[in-house]
Design a binder for these strands. Structure first.
Length: 497
DNA sequence: CTAGGGTTAG
């Protein structure tokens, strides 16, 4: 709670500074002044109404030093004050959630003969960034193929309605949410319009914005246009990266768009930009994924020639490649090269290597590096255990996988969705269907929410084994939880194959 | 702190 409050406070303050500066720069444009004055007024009110509770949090720290052994009463007052603020904040959260639920209900009634706008007005709810966020997320969560047009309409109606409220301005986050809603319905024109609007109003366009756009376009031609627009954009906030190319390359890397990475790199060179370590690492990884290992190696050489020695990420990629090629000896050599370069191999390196080796089918090497990792004082975490469990299952050694699973508990590591899904898959492959179903129950009772993939894994294995009844029971349980009903088709489709 | 590791999928 405290840390959230502090972040909020800093955020508000930084916007404050930002407003002050921009106002003095743009003092000729009336539109800007009005816009910022509105934001500023809102912020002043916000600080008043929130009673500057965040400030008192900070003061508390200083005062606790000053007031050691002096005024106990003062501390009590502070404490009371603090509790009051915690109470205010949680009731604000609760009220906002209720208001959002009411707004969603009103929106659902929208249709001919129903004026949603005035119905929303009649609710007399306080519009805040949190409220708009709650409502838009509520819409986004329920969106599916069948209702998406209506969802877009309702979402946009609410976006416009809330944006017109006095003392409220949309945030970058609410823009992103409405863009995501449009993206679900492939309303690209509307997305571009919103992007222009953000830029006009001086909102920072971030890599999140880029991500929403790039994920929404299937065609390569459109994707290139998106990239071009963001590279050229003056309002693109590419921090923490050095320039927009690296920010874009990193986003593309995260969504595994390797072809586009090659293209962006060409644009970057044409633009006269020099690649740095980050650029090289991403390009090299893309080359590897595209199966162009010769280019990978020439880039690696080029990188060294240009004064960029391999860093921990570079070594991570190298280890992965040697693992996949089933060259454990090379991996050993590189591990010691890393150490010579002053880079200690950590869990991520070992996990990565073990995963790659398991894909190459070398179970002995997997075990060797797992033990080496522990020996070197590197504690395996959930991912490392999951990768080992997966390796054993891939090698058909289910008992070993189970052993790992219980070792994991002994070492105090809590399995997550990946782990459970891997175990359920393993149990199915071993023909232990009752256990697989029990494992699903277990993960639920341990508070680990099964995702769609978990259900899909279990159901498809059950169906393929002719256990239709059990499969339907699992589906029933899934639908009862009410989250993945709209994805049912995907399981059925699987059945027909 | 702020680039890195995982459910084989078409």
């Amino acid at each position: 709670m405290l840390s959230i409050a502090q972040i909020d406070h800093r955020f508000v303050q930084s916007i404050f500074c930002f407003c002050g500066i921009s106002r003095s720069i743009c003092s000729t444009s009336n539109g800007f002044i009005d816009g910022f004055q509105r934001i500023e007024k809102y912020l002043i009110d916000y600080r008043k109404s929130s009673n500057c509770d965040t400030v008192s949090d900070e003061n508390q720290e200083e005062e606790s030093v000053d007031s050691v052994g002096t005024s106990g009463r003062y501390e009590e007052e502070e404490e009371e004050h603090h509790q009051q603020n915690v109470f205010n904040r949680s009731s604000f959260l609760r009220n906002t959630k209720n208001a959002a639920a009411m707004a969603l209900k009103v929106l659902q009634q929208d249709g001919p003969g129903f004026d949603a706008r005035s119905a929303l007005d009649n609710l007399e709810i306080q519009v805040s960034g949190l409220l708009v966020r709650e409502v838009l997320i509520g819409i986004l969560k329920n969106i599916n193929q069948a209702n998406r047009e209506r969802c877009v309409k309702l979402g946009y109606k609410f976006f416009i309605w809330s944006g017109q409220k006095q003392d409220y301005n949309h945030t970058v986050n609410t823009y992103h949410l409405i863009m995501q809603i449009f993206a679900e319905s492939q309303e690209y024109k509307a997305m571009w319009r919103l992007l222009d609007e953000m830029t006009e109003k001086g909102y920072p366009v971030t890599s999140r914005t880029f991500n929403i756009f790039i994920c929404s376009c299937g065609e390569a031609g459109i994707a290139k246009k998106v990239v071009e627009r963001f590279i050229k954009s003056n309002s693109f906030n590419f921090r923490p990266f050095k320039h927009s190319f690296n920010a874009i390359l990193h986003s593309l890397h995260a969504i595994k768009h390797y072809n586009l990475i090659e293209w962006v790199y060409q644009q970057m060179l044409a633009d006269g930009r020099q690649p740095d370590t980050l650029t090289y690492n991403i390009i090299m990884y893309a080359k590897y994924r595209l199966g162009r290992l010769d280019q990978f190696h020439s880039l690696f050489d080029e990188m060294g020639r240009n004064g960029f020695p391999p860093d921990l990420h570079t070594f991570n990629i190298l280890l992965h490649i040697y693992g996949r090629a089933n060259k454990p000896a090379e991996a050993v050599v590189h591990l010691s090269m890393m150490k010579e370069a002053g880079i200690e191999p950590n869990v991520l390196h070992f996990t990565n290597l073990i995963d790659a080796l398991s894909r190459a089918g070398n179970m002995d090497a997997c075990k060797y590096f797992f033990d080496l990792m522990v020996e070197q004082g590197c504690e395996p975490d959930v991912v490392a255990y999951t990768v080992m469990i997966n390796a054993h299952i891939a090698g058909g050694q289910f008992e070993k996988a189970e052993e790992m699973f219980s070792d994991m508990f002994d070492n105090g590591k809590i399995p997550n969705v990946y782990t459970y899904n891997t175990m359920i898959r393993g149990l199915c492959m071993a023909g232990k269907f009752e256990y697989a179903c029990l494992m699903l129950k277990e993960m639920e009772s341990r508070g680990c929410n099964p995702n769609f993939l978990v259900y899909k894994t279990l159901v498809s294995f059950l169906k393929n084994a002719g256990k239709v009844f059990e499969a339907n029971e699992v589906i029933k349980g899934m639908v009862e939880k009410g989250q993945y009903g709209h994805l049912l088709k995907r399981i059925k489709k699987y059945k027909r194959c």
